[in-house]
């Protein structure tokens, strides 16, 4: 297991966004996290990545099951968890290339002093960062857009840029929050291909997605959330037929 979440709970005032949610992801596994809007999926990601502090529960990460429950976001990233956001939060005024270069921050160590002196080690590191970032941009098929301002990219490309930026942090686990939202069929097929390739590189993926075709085709295991609770977990085919899941999506009345 690379990620193991035990009994995670989080409430905002009276809203119980997450209640006792447990979930695990194995190495090189693609796990889907689905559920209707407001089910608590994004909150779950925010708790794992240190953006929110969970009220209770434990988050263990890595081969040695290190406890990262209350780590700040930058430390979680340093441990090897990267994420994308539901609403593509790229650094708008920077070029696509610079966006990806930001991702390498915690994996580089040139000091302020070496930056001021322009030491040869710092220049070498900077070249390496640039090469690696160009490589990642090509990996997500954005090589030609390297010098475009991120804000000028269409939404679909911003999503791919976010993926490249997340990969630049050298993660072992990638959390993707609705990466296919707003994409057309061709773009979705490309995204599917891209996620498979990421997984082949030994990176585990936990993906929130509404497009059932994409989730069913991609994931080895699916976890379903509804109103902050885990209602089902299993293989794609089994989850699809689960009555609780159908109720959650379609409502009790309609099902009957």
């Amino acid at each position: 297991m690379i990620l193991e979440v035990n009994g995670l709970s989080k409430h905002f005032g009276g809203i119980h966004a997450l209640t006792n949610v447990s979930l695990s992801v194995a190495k090189s596994e693609i796990v889907g996290l689905i559920g209707p809007n407001g089910a608590g999926k994004t909150t779950f990601f925010n708790c794992i990545t240190g953006v929110y502090h969970p009220d209770s529960g434990k988050i263990l990460f890595g081969e040695y099951a290190r406890d990262i429950t209350h780590h700040p976001a930058h430390k979680v990233s340093g441990q090897g968890i990267a994420r994308t956001f539901q609403s593509a939060r790229v650094f708008a005024s920077m070029s696509a290339l610079e966006n990806v270069m930001v991702g390498t921050f915690s994996r580089t160590n040139a000091s302020v002093w070496s930056a001021l002196r322009c030491s040869s080690r710092m220049i070498e590191e900077e070249h390496a960062v640039r090469r690696r970032s160009e490589e990642l941009l090509r990996f997500v098929k954005l090589g030609r857009r390297a010098f475009d301002v991120a804000a000028s990219l269409p939404f679909g490309l911003q999503r791919r840029l976010e993926i490249a930026r997340a990969l630049a942090t050298e993660p072992r686990l990638l959390l993707m929050d609705e990466p296919a939202a707003g994409m057309n069929t061709a773009e979705k097929a490309e995204l599917l291909e891209l996620i498979r390739k990421i997984c082949e590189n030994g990176i585990s993926v936990l993906i929130i997605e509404h497009d059932m075709k994409l989730v069913m085709g991609l994931c080895q295991r699916i976890v379903v959330l509804d109103s902050g609770e885990k209602i089902c977990e299993g293989k794609p085919g089994d989850v699809q037929c689960d009555t609780k899941v159908i109720e959650a999506y379609l409502g009790k009345e309609m099902h009957r």
Partner: peptide
């Protein structure tokens, strides 16, 4: 680069390891 990232989006910057 990290400074500008913080200005643009502090949460995203923190999640990128800054």
């Amino acid at each position: 680069r990290a400074w500008i990232a913080i200005k643009e989006d502090e949460v995203a910057a923190a999640c990128m390891g800054i």
